[in-house]
């Protein structure tokens, strides 16, 4: 599903160069649930941005389903993001001007496809937001907004889900609910999940835990 080879990324600063990713290589198989843990500044989010095609490395390759994200022109990278990759962020990143329903169907609408109402109903039930389709994000709690973000990722039927601190802004109860949903996405729909987290409890839901430090993988454990 995901083949990363010799990925290197540096950021210039006034004090010299910061190595965010140091020749990192990683293979994630289809259907895996991987948690990436490590201290702040270890390169976890940079790795996620590279996989999502939001940032470009200095060298190396990121193959998603056999396609190199690094060398993909912007238009094709956008298409791949829309069809293959779902992304969830710590701060939900919903569009405040769109209702819950419109936020969920946004990637499909951008793709110019018809909305499958049955599937939308099913996903709303799964995330426990049925009956709130017309609400705007600011009328929802943090946990509910994160569930909308999950529903948006799920509705696009991605084969890879990238989650950047999905429980970082939530209380314990909501965090457990979000982790339950992510596990369900992985086990029921077979979606490969790569999650960056600081939470040990969240990482415990994953089948594989990768620890990063100074832009390198220092530990890779399967449970």
């Amino acid at each position: 599903m995901l083949h990363i080879q010799n990925l290197r990324k540096t950021y210039p600063t006034t004090d010299g160069e910061i190595v965010a990713l140091d020749n990192l290589s990683l293979v994630v198989n289809r259907g895996d649930f991987v948690a990436v843990v490590g201290r702040s500044g270890s390169g976890k989010t940079t790795l996620l941005n590279m996989i999502g095609g939001l940032d470009t490395p200095d060298s190396g390759s990121v193959m998603v389903d056999g396609i190199d994200m690094v060398r993909l022109p912007p238009k094709r990278a956008a298409l791949l993001r829309r069809k293959t990759i779902g992304v969830i962020y710590q701060f939900y990143n919903l569009i405040p001007e769109l209702t819950l329903r419109e936020n969920i169907t946004l990637p499909t609408e951008l793709d110019g496809r018809e909305i499958d109402e049955e599937r939308l109903d099913h996903i709303l039930s799964v995330v426990g937001l049925k009956g709130r389709e017309g609400a705007y994000p600011d009328a929802l709690s943090g946990g509910q907004q994160q569930r909308v973000a999950i529903a948006r990722a799920l509705f696009g039927q991605p084969s890879l889900l990238l989650a950047d601190e999905p429980t970082g802004n939530l209380d314990a109860e909501n965090s457990r609910e979000i982790m339950r949903l992510l596990t369900m996405m992985n086990q029921t729909y077979g979606i490969t999940v790569l999650m960056v987290t600081h939470s040990e409890e969240a990482a415990a839901s994953a089948g594989r835990i990768i620890t990063m430090a100074d832009g390198r993988i220092i530990d890779d454990r399967r449970r």
Binding site: A78, R82, V87, N93, L106
Partner: peptide
């Protein structure tokens, strides 16, 4: 940024 992350084309 959100549009980019959900796959909006340029």
């Amino acid at each position: 940024a959100v549009l980019t992350s959900v796959g909006a084309s340029p």
